[in-house]
Design a protein around this nucleic acid. Structure first.
Length: 278
DNA sequence: ACTTCGTCCTGTCCGC
DNA sequence: TGCGGACAGGACGAAG
């Protein structure tokens, strides 16, 4: 999916267009996503004003005052802002039409998701107590994600560090791409057991996760196949991957071929010279 | 309590 | 050119 940088890029792209606008129509063409799209979404949303677009982990949360619309992009989802009539493409599952009361302009927020691993759900209570969001770890770009937190959290975990930082109850937003990239920058082997990392290791890893995610956000995220931002453009961070999707190619630091292993059924890229197991 | 694994989908790519 | 299988950004929930 879209990992944190792609979701954040989407949030920044849609917010100026939809905040303050009022829902005028909702069309659900394909309700079968990861969970069924909340039935009666049209009557729930029409007439309501969207106050704010928020992000928690990889979830987008559209604040309608009397509830939130939760949107998850799954593996292949994207949201686009359309200001002119645009031909429907395959897998364009949901349209939410808005009218801006200030200038009377209308736009469409269009949800597209070929693999349908995403979710669009109405949450009547505050999202923080929703089962999907209640157990999430800290946001990586806040001070709550720091070396002391990570060290204490991981001291009992024997899972490989790469699997661990992808665990959304440890820290949110880090997916398969940014896990490999952050570990390379930290010179930590992806199979290193989480509970064997020192406080110094944790300090370095925290810094590199923050740095990697920030750089990716500045690059508009990464596009492997499906991801596009709210204007339909691809990201750019894939052009500066140091290890992800580079199996067999030379390490940017030492030229040794990048290795590919599977951890928790996910492809994992690293340099066995720069990232030695301890 | 922790950790691993199967699963939900469609599309693409690779080897035969 | 066609076909089967593996794999792709996630993460829940069952099984071990």
């Amino acid at each position: 999916m879209p990992e944190l940088p792609e979701v954040e890029t989407t949030k920044k792209g849609i917010a100026p267009h939809v905040e303050g606008a009022i829902v005028s129509a909702v069309v659900v063409r394909q309700p079968k996503l990861r969970w069924p799209v909340t039935p009666g979404l049209d009557s729930l949303l029409i007439g309501k004003r969207l106050l704010k677009v928020e992000r928690r982990a990889k979830y987008l949360l559209l604040d309608f005052g009397e509830g939130w619309l939760l949107i998850h992009l799954g593996m292949s989802g994207s949201l686009r802002v359309l200001t002119i009539d645009t031909e429907l493409k395959k897998h364009d599952h949901i349209d939410i039409s808005f009218t801006d009361p200030e200038d009377n302009r209308s736009i469409i927020l269009r949800y597209h998701d070929p693999r349908r691993f995403g979710a669009v759900l109405w949450i009547p209570d505050h999202w923080s107590i929703h089962p999907l969001l209640a157990k999430l770890g800290p946001e990586p770009l806040t001070d709550a994600f720091n070396k002391e937190y990570l060290y204490n959290k991981m001291r009992t975990l024997r899972t490989p560090i790469k699997t661990t930082i992808m665990d959304q109850s440890v820290v949110v937003g880090v997916g398969n791409i940014y896990a490999s990239e952050s570990l390379f920058s930290s010179k930590i082997h992806p199979q290193q057991p989480a509970n064997t990392l020192s406080v110094e290791d944790c300090e370095l890893l925290v810094r590199e996760i923050k740095q990697t995610l920030q750089l990716a956000i500045q690059s508009g995220g990464s596009t492997l196949r499906d991801y596009v931002n709210s204007a339909g453009d691809t990201g750019y961070f894939q052009h500066v991957f140091k290890v992800y999707d580079r199996a067999g190619e030379g390490c940017v630091v030492c030229s040794k071929p990048i290795e590919l292993i599977r951890l928790g059924q996910r492809s994992t890229f690293f340099c066995s010279n720069c990232q030695s197991l301890r």
